[in-house]
Nucleic acid binder design. Structure first.
Lengths: 132, 132
DNA sequence: CCAAAATATGCCTTGACACGTATATACCCT
DNA sequence: AGGGTATATACGTGTCAAGGCATATTTTGG
């Protein structure tokens, strides 16, 4: 459990993070809103804390948890390499720091026409792969 | 294995995806570059394909795999809810991460007014200990 | 000091999944 | 046809993490 990606692979943890977006919450509040047993919440929070997703402060017997930006930025940085790739399709990320620009992309596919190359027997197989 | 986050939790799969950013690749090419056994590559590719991360076309006995944007956009959409949050903290964590090695002309987030703090909710906590 | 509230932790079981090895399938060339 | 290449799949195995449950720890108020 090292990478940030493994951390957020857990649905309950993602739920907790989404919950904390609005404001900081105590364990009990999370427990109630997400309807999961308290030990489960605590354990997930521990994982999130050790991974740097959240931090906590003490308030009497409560612990108030809130988000920390680090890991999110890390994920964003990883996504960055793909962003250019998909940005041709979408403009939903206009609010994002991206410049719409039709530059020569990473010269992705050689655009080999398509069935070119040395392919003779074209599609006649069971076609089992491909996008199912 | 439903969500896109569980898919990319696997390091080898992330490596494959990163490899495919440059251009489409055959299974054998991936196998050699990442130095992992062929069955492993095929299995991961299968998972990635069924999750919509990649698609394949047939080239003789080869399968050429390339990226598909869908799942990446989905991840980005999820991150979106946190983006505002960490943008507010940019100045605060400027000291925290100084990975300023952007080669691309992608200028970072346009400096936003760091006027007010992001005070939320009635905090009556008395800051004390932290992290076990 | 004691009880109650809030949270953390320890143990155990279970299931998912990644891997290795072997084998099956599909396609090419001579 | 046959052999070689490229990729997919089946099976057995080990590991690890999530959940449930009980219990420990901390803090407050009386």
């Amino acid at each position: 459990m090292e990478s940030v990606f493994e951390i957020i692979a857990e649905p309950n943890r993602r739920a907790i993070l989404s919950l904390l977006v609005s404001s900081q919450q105590s364990v009990g509040e999370i427990e109630r809103q997400l309807r999961m047993p308290q030990p489960t919440v605590s354990k997930h929070l521990r994982v999130l804390r050790e991974a740097g997703f959240v931090e906590s402060t003490v308030d009497a017997q409560r612990r108030l948890y809130r988000l920390k930006p680090g890991p999110f930025q890390e994920m964003d940085a990883w996504l960055e390499q793909f962003r250019r790739f998909w940005s041709d399709h979408v403009d939903a990320l206009e609010r994002h720091l991206d410049r719409r620009e039709r530059s020569s992309p990473t010269r992705a596919t050689p655009a080999k026409s398509k069935t070119g190359k040395r392919q003779r027997g074209p599609n006649r197989e069971r076609d089992k792969g491909e996008t199912k």
